[in-house]
Structures are given as structure tokens and as C-alpha cells.
């Protein structure tokens, strides 16, 4: 594993996008950054710029209008990257699954690596989701390198 890979896996920067949530998951996600949970001690920083981000955290159902923005953000992120879907809505559409404006869960638009269930999931669960996504990201990177060698 190269130096850059080590650095990446030790300090993943996250990008949060609300694709149509009720705010419940969003505020739990923000709560992760605050003193009680404080993910910054693991080097995790919430960043507004997709070009700096390693992990994309998506909350909420994807609707017809936000799908394009979500896709756009994902495409701007550099490889290796991971997507974490947070909350029942991001998993399957949740309580809104049959609404007319809803495309479904995040996986209807993007490849999702980790699903964090709950309505809303607790901050501990979200942190675990990010950590799991890192593991998957590393695995994928190893596989890619093995394939190239």
C-alpha cells in the first residue's frame, strides 16, 4: 500500500448530500461532527467540495430533480471513492417509497457500498458505516492494483 493510500484510509473526507430527506438523518450526520461524537479525531472532515472528498454520504430518497445533482457530485469525486446510503429513505425510499416524485433509494442512481438502516440512524451507526466504507474502498483499490500488475 502506497503512502497516499495509507493517508486516505486514515483521514477520509466526507461529502454530504441530502437527496430528499426529512432532515432527520442530516442532523444526525451533523451531530457526528460535534463534540459528543467528534469524528474529527479520526481525521474525518465534512467538506463542501466534491473534488476533495473520499466518501459520499447520501441521505434521503432520490427524486427526479436531485438525481442529476447527485450523479454530478459523484462524477466529480476522484477515485477511489465510496458511497454510503444513510437512513431508511436512502435504502429503499422508506415511508415515501410509493410517492409519485420518488425514484427510489440511492442505489437506483449510484453504486452504493454501505447501507446504514434506521429512521433516523444513530450517529454511532453512521460512523460505523463510514468506517466500513473505508474498508471496502481499500479492498477495491487492492483488487485494482493486483489486476494492473
Amino acid at each position: 500500500m502506497g503512502l497516499i493510500d495509507i493517508a486516505r484510509s486514515k483521514s477520509p473526507w466526507i461529502l454530504h448530500f441530502d437527496a430528499g430527506a426529512c432532515n432527520g438523518c442530516d442532523i444526525e450526520l451533523l451531530a457526528c461532527l460535534t463534540p459528543v461524537y467528534d469524528v474529527e479525531r479520526f481525521g474525518i472532515i465534512n467538506i463542501g467540495n466534491p473534488k476533495h472528498a473520499d466518501v459520499l454520504l447520501v441521505t434521503g430518497t432520490v427524486n427526479k430533480r436531485s438525481a442529476r445533482v447527485l450523479r454530478n457530485l459523484y462524477d466529480q469525486m476522484p477515485e477511489p471513492k465510496a458511497v454510503v446510503a444513510i437512513g431508511a429513505c436512502a435504502l429503499s425510499g422508506g415511508v415515501f417509497h410509493q410517492c409519485y416524485n420518488i425514484l427510489g433509494g440511492v442505489d437506483s442512481v449510484l453504486p452504493v457500498d454501505v447501507y446504514v438502516p434506521g429512521c433516523a440512524p444513530k450517529p454511532e451507526a453512521i460512523i460505523e458505516g463510514v468506517v466500513m466504507a473505508l474498508g471496502k474502498m481499500q479492498e477495491r483499490e487492492h483488487a485494482r492494483k493486483r489486476g494492473a500488475a
Binding site: D18, A19, G20, N63, S66, F96, Q98, C99, Y100, N101
Partner: peptide
């Protein structure tokens, strides 16, 4: 329109 879900319609169903 980025978070419109259609709750009012869903409430009728």
C-alpha cells in the same frame, strides 16, 4: 424542488 417527495398525495393514499 430538490427535496419534493409528494407527501400530500401520499397522505390521500
Amino acid at each position: 424542488g430538490y427535496v419534493h417527495r409528494g407527501v400530500e398525495k401520499a397522505a390521500e393514499r
